[in-house]
């Protein structure tokens, strides 16, 4: 298949885009894009590949942001270690939350995760002596053995490998046998159970892995901004990442990245233009996408290309399948 050969090309182009990003946009915005992209990929792992809509992912992103900030402030560890510590905290938090949440499915699962996230929000808000409450956690240092990271442009290149590792991990997870089981659970949990897989345990593990990736992103975000605020654990953050994922196309892994790029850029452009109704515009875009392109941007493109190929079944033209498409179909 040509797509196999095209794969590395797409990957290379993506990497180049990631490297070129801070040249093209304001560097702090580039870092925001990278963090949100990883966050959206983490959510897609759950939403697109396991079929669980978490409406409380801010709990993991935010708890890691705070944990990373606290570790960085109090221990002065290099920032990658602080971020890692934040991700571990997020994963630890995901165990009880996941274990309790997977007892429900569909809308109830979403509501339970939202409730847990709000609990975290209130804990962070009330625990002012540690988290700074309404003031947020200020003055998170960017420490790395004496390297000067004060320029956001430089910091981006130190943060990027962590984001890329996170995305690579997600890519690897969905292609592993474990990932195939997740997809099977999404499509038919009863049959998977009949085949002898402990469905809930797989789901909890998926939530923990997703929380870990969300934690990496949240920790980097906190270090990048030098700041963790209540906004990080607020439910609108959970909503924003769902919008990004759906906008780009769920279950595509690359789609959420596209969604993150588009949404962060859109917000930045509107904010810079001094436009007040940012949420109105993102909301409208979201409604339009849900109404017109259910599969999201990348999902729709892939669907159209696949349909074109299917019509030519007798002579399948190689190369029309986008190389970036994850191996979801074979699992069906």
């Amino acid at each position: 298949m040509l797509s196999r050969r095209l794969g590395p090309l797409w990957l290379g182009l993506g990497l180049l885009a990631a490297l070129a990003l801070p040249w093209l946009v304001y560097p702090p915005v580039a870092l925001d894009i990278a963090c949100w992209a990883l966050f959206a990929v983490a959510l897609d792992l759950l939403l697109g590949f396991t079929g669980l809509l978490s409406f409380g992912h801010a709990a993991f992103w935010g708890s890691s942001a705070y944990a990373t900030g606290l570790v960085a402030i109090h221990t002065g560890l290099p920032f990658p270690l602080a971020v890692l510590a934040g991700a571990v905290v997020a994963m630890a938090l995901a165990v009880p939350i996941g274990w309790l949440s997977v007892r429900r499915t569909g809308i109830y699962f979403a509501m339970v995760t939202l409730a847990f996230a709000q609990t975290i929000y209130f804990v962070v808000n009330q625990w002012g002596s540690v988290t700074g409450g309404e003031n947020g956690l200020q003055g998170v240092p960017r420490e790395l053995g004496g390297v000067d990271l004060s320029d956001p442009f430089v910091f981006y290149y130190w943060a990027l490998p962590i984001v890329l590792l996170g995305i690579a991990a997600a890519w690897r997870i969905v292609r592993s046998p474990f990932g195939r089981v997740l997809v099977a659970i999404r499509d038919n949990p009863a049959r998977v159970r009949a085949l002898g897989y402990p469905v809930e345990r797989y789901e909890v593990l998926a939530i923990v892995l997703s929380a870990g990736l969300a934690g990496l992103a949240g920790g980097l975000f906190a270090v990048g901004h030098g700041f963790a605020s209540l906004q990080e654990v607020y439910w609108t953050t959970s909503g924003k990442v769902v919008i990004m994922t759906v906008l780009g196309g769920i279950g595509t892994l690359w789609g959420p990245i596209l969604g993150a790029i588009l949404l962060v850029l859109l917000e930045d452009q509107l904010a810079t233009a001094g436009f007040d109704g940012i949420n109105l515009v993102t909301g409208l875009v979201f409604v339009l996408v849900v109404l017109l392109f259910r599969r999201g941007i990348l999902g729709t493109v892939r669907h159209l290309l696949l349909r074109r190929r299917d019509r030519r079944v007798p002579d399948p033209e190689p190369g029309v399948e986008p190389a970036s498409a994850p191996a979801v179909e074979p699992a069906r």
Partner: peptide, 12 residues
């Protein structure tokens, strides 16, 4: 009145 927005805006 939000510290996170103030932080980003000041930087910008």
């Amino acid at each position: 009145n939000k510290p996170d927005i103030a932080n980003t805006k000041a930087q910008e």
